[in-house]
């Protein structure tokens, strides 16, 4: 168990965003395993109905219920997962805060629940952030149920609007219970208890979106955590050879000699194919180096996770978790 003193200073809510396709869900799941190391109990939530967590943890599709899906890294605590369904979250919210009983049913019959969860813009995001807030703050006998909550959040294009929705609500609700709830959520999101991490690959557009998101979240006074470079490929050639490969200056003769030495065909088609593979790889690495430099200027901690050629399974998720933990950025 983490000691009380360190638990108090560690962030309790980790929001994971990033451009689509960069591996937000994978990073959120790995972060859950990492944060659950040392016996902490952790909840990871998804909000887009894709059941990405279930497929990563290799369990049946998640219902609207917090279920244990794994055990944290090395002697870890419980890792629970939750797929937040807005309709269920709304009914639960009504029940929890208002104990409406029969009137709650009447609301549903009147189409209020449908209206709130599908017709009315914005309400969805209020409900989703509200549920995450509830789980983060939930206590039993004065002790937090979860030491950390990880949110697999909407992509960078929507993240500012998503996280700031309660501040908009506060603008509409001048007083009353909704205002109180909205203010409490914004207080948590803007406190040192919360961090927003951004996942990216080392390509121009994802990096640009990461930089834009850093600006946007900064303007909204939301606390930024780490930038996670996902699927980083290690160079297959030494730097000098990479440069030669891009310039087309690799020594063909000595490659042919090496191929013969290795007992392989050294005909021109084979050599050309290899040179092409080298050139493409070299160009990729140069591009990645330039993008990495852009990220380094953001002043945030930058953590890199390796490319897994065979895709991500539960075993490799633990490897990624170990990398995240070793980085010390969380």
């Amino acid at each position: 168990m983490t000691s009380d003193a360190s638990a108090r200073t560690r962030p309790r809510l980790h929001v994971v965003s990033g451009k689509g396709g960069t591996g937000k869900t994978t990073v959120a799941a790995a972060l859950a395993l990492a944060l659950a190391s040392g016996g902490s109990n952790v909840l990871v939530c998804e909000v887009e109905g894709r059941q990405g967590l279930a497929s990563l943890f290799d369990v049946a599709p998640l219902p609207y219920e917090e279920r244990q899906v794994a055990v944290g890294l090395g002697d870890g605590g419980d890792v629970c997962a939750l797929a937040i369904d807005t309709r269920a979250a709304f009914l639960e919210y009504l029940d929890m805060f208002y104990r409406l009983g029969r009137a709650g049913k009447a609301l549903d019959k009147f189409g209020v629940v449908d209206f709130a969860t599908t017709v009315a813009p914005g309400v969805r995001d209020v409900l989703l952030t509200g549920k995450v807030f509830e789980a983060t703050n939930r206590r039993v006998d004065g002790v937090h149920v979860y030491d950390a909550v990880i949110l697999d959040a909407p992509p960078t294009g929507r993240i500012g609007r998503f996280l700031n929705v309660n501040s908009e609500v506060a603008g509409i609700a001048k007083v009353g219970p909704i205002r109180k709830q909205a203010d409490a959520i914004m207080r948590l999101l803007r406190s040192p208890d919360a961090l927003v991490h951004l996942v990216t690959s080392l390509e121009e557009m994802p990096v640009q979106e990461t930089i834009d998101a850093v600006t946007e979240l900064g303007d909204l006074r939301l606390p930024l955590g780490a930038v996670v470079i996902n699927r980083l490929r290690t160079p297959a050639l030494p730097q000098a050879a990479l440069d030669d490969a891009v310039r087309g200056e690799l020594d063909v003769g000595s490659i042919e000699t090496s191929l013969k030495e290795a007992g392989l065909k050294s005909e021109p088609a084979v050599v050309d194919g290899l040179l092409d593979a080298g050139r493409r790889h070299g160009e990729r690495v140069q591009l990645e180096t330039a993008q990495r430099q852009r990220l380094d200027t953001l002043g945030l901690s930058v953590v890199a996770l390796p490319y897994l050629s065979d895709g991500v399974d539960l075993g490799s998720l633990y490897e990624l978790a170990a990398d995240l933990k070793a980085s010390g950025a969380f």
Binding site: A236, L237, P238, A241, S254, L264, L274, A277, H281
Partner: peptide, 25 residues
């Protein structure tokens, strides 16, 4: 990858092996 450590030439075998791995990948 340590072949370049002292600034000396990278051996052709190392380069060819790297290219073969890229090809296989």
């Amino acid at each position: 990858l340590s072949a370049t450590g002292d600034g000396s030439e990278v051996s052709a075998d190392v380069i060819t092996a790297g290219l073969l791995r890229l090809h296989a990948e």
